[in-house]
Write a protein that binds this DNA or RNA. Structure first.
Lengths: 228, 228
DNA sequence: GTGGATGATCAAGAATTCTTGATCGCAAAC
DNA sequence: GTTTGCGATCAAGAATTCTTGATCATCCAC
C-alpha cells in the first residue's frame, strides 16, 4: 500500500521536526508547512491523505483555514489546539467526524487518532474486500489467499467479491447474477455455474482449507468459512 | 444495495415486535430469536450483518454467548443491557469496537449505533470507491457519474480506481502501471496512455464537468476535482 | 430400474478486451 | 525553420475472457 501522506501545518520548527521524525518512522510521508500560505501550496503539490492543523498560525486562524481546505479536499483534518481554548468552540467547528487533539499531546495518542481517521476514510481498505485470510484487491485485479496471489478475471473477481461480501449467506443464482452482471438473463444459472467452477479451480478445491463454496441444491450457492 | 440483515436476540415478544417494525420500516431485514438456541439456528440460517443481543436471556447469558458468536461470525454485536448492570463489566467484555446500549433505549439512538457499526465494517461501501459525484462499483464493474451509469472494462475500472484513490495526486506512469497491472514493463507508458484515452472518452472529455484527467507533461497524470 | 431434475465440467465459437505499432499535433529547443 | 520529444489518438492483430451447447454424474421420485 502506498504510504499515507500527512500535511503537518505547524509554525514551530522544532515541534515540526520531532513530529516529522516520529511519523516518518511509522512509515508515513510527512509534508511540513510553517505558514498557511505554504500549506496552501503544499496542498496543491501533494494532495495529502490527512491534515494536521495547528490552530494558531502566524498568518491566520486554522479554523478559518479549515473552511478553505474543505473546498479543496475531503482528507480528514485533525486540529492541534491549546488546552486553554474553548473546547465547545472547537467541537462546534468540527464536522463530519474530524478530530482534534490538545497540546501538549502524546505522540502515540496523536498517531492513534491519525490511524483512526485514515481507517475511517477507508484509506487502507479502499478497493479491497478482506475476509481473513482471503483478500480481494480490485485495483490489482487479484485475490490473495494465505499469501498466495491468485490472478482473477473480471467476472471471477466480481463473483468472489459477491461471495466474500455475503459469506455464509445463501445466494440464489438470480441474486448473484444481478449483483455481478446486473439485470437478469435466462441463461443466468448456467453462466454463473461455469464461473463458479472456474473460481473453484483457481481457489483450490478446498478453498485453501479455509473456505467452502457449496451448492445448497435449491438453486443457491453458499460461500462459507470452514475454519477459524 | 442489499438490505442489511439484523439478528435480534430478545426474549420479550413485544419488545421484539416493536423493534422489528421500526427497523423493517428503515429498510432492514430483521430476524428475531427469543432464545439463544434459536439465535444459533438463525445465525447459521441467515448470516446476519449485525447482531443485537439482549444480555439477559432465559437460556443463558448473552456475554458468554458472545464468545461463541465470535467463533462463527465477525458481524458487529451490540449488547442490550439493563442500566443496573455493572458498566465496567460490560465495557470489559466489549472487544474490537462493538457497542452496547442500556435499556430502556431510544430506538433512534439504537438505529444510529447500528448504522455506525455497519459503516465501520464497511457493509455499505465494500467493493466501492466513492468520490462524489463519482462512484466506482467493482462488484458491478461499472462507474456512476451524476447518476449516469458507465460500464467499464477491467483495466479502465482499475485505472479509474487508482485515480480516484489518489485524486489530486501526481501519479507517474510507472506508479500507475504497478498499481493497476502489477510489476513494470517497457511499454508501460504507452499502454497506460491508451487506457487513459479510453477512459476520457467514456467519462466525457470534461469528466462530466466535475473532474479533469490531465497530464503534467513530466510523465505523470493527475486526476482532480475541478468543481465542489 | 427408469426417468427427470439438478449441478459440474468440458469444449469451442463468439465477443470483448488488451497491447502494440503507426501517425498526428503541439511545443520547446536548437 | 527545423528538429526533437512527448502526449494523444487511431487501428488492427493478438490474447483473453465470456457465453452457450453438450455431456456426464448424482440424487430423488416414480
Amino acid at each position: 500500500m502506498k504510504k499515507a501522506t500527512l500535511l503537518m501545518v505547524e509554525d514551530e520548527a522544532d515541534v515540526l521536526a520531532i513530529n516529522r521524525e516520529y511519523f516518518e518512522g511509522k512509515g508515513y510521508e510527512v509534508i511540513g508547512a510553517d505558514t498557511l500560505a505554504q500549506a496552501r501550496f503544499q496542498l496543491e503539490e501533494h494532495s495529502p491523505d490527512l491534515i494536521l492543523l495547528d490552530v494558531m498560525m502566524p498568518d491566520g486562524s486554522g479554523f478559518e483555514f479549515c473552511a478553505e481546505l474543505r473546498q479543496k479536499t475531503n482528507a480528514p483534518i485533525i486540529f492541534l489546539t491549546c488546552r486553554d481554548e474553548n473546547e465547545s468552540v472547537v467541537k462546534g467547528l468540527l464536522q463530519g467526524g474530524d478530530d482534534y487533539v490538545t497540546k501538549p499531546y502524546d505522540l502515540n495518542v496523536l498517531a492513534a487518532r491519525v490511524g483512526a481517521q485514515l481507517r475511517r476514510t477507508g484509506f487502507m481498505t479502499a478497493g479491497k474486500i478482506e475476509l481473513f485470510p482471503l483478500s480481494i484487491d480490485f485495483l490489482l485485479g487479484e485475490a490473495t489467499l494465505d499469501d498466495e496471489c491468485i490472478p482473477l478475471t473480471q467476472k471471477e473477481l466480481q463473483l468472489l467479491g459477491c461471495f466474500a461480501l455475503f459469506a455464509g449467506r445463501r445466494l440464489s443464482y438470480d441474486e448473484i447474477y444481478s449483483r455481478a452482471w446486473g439485470g437478469s438473463s435466462p441463461g443466468a444459472a448456467h453462466t454463473v455455474a461455469v464461473h463458479v467452477a472456474n473460481l473453484r479451480k483457481k481457489l483450490g478445491a478446498d478453498g485453501g482449507g479455509w473456505f467452502e463454496l457449496s451448492n445448497s441444491g435449491k438453486g443457491e450457492y453458499i460461500f462459507s468459512k470452514v475454519r477459524y
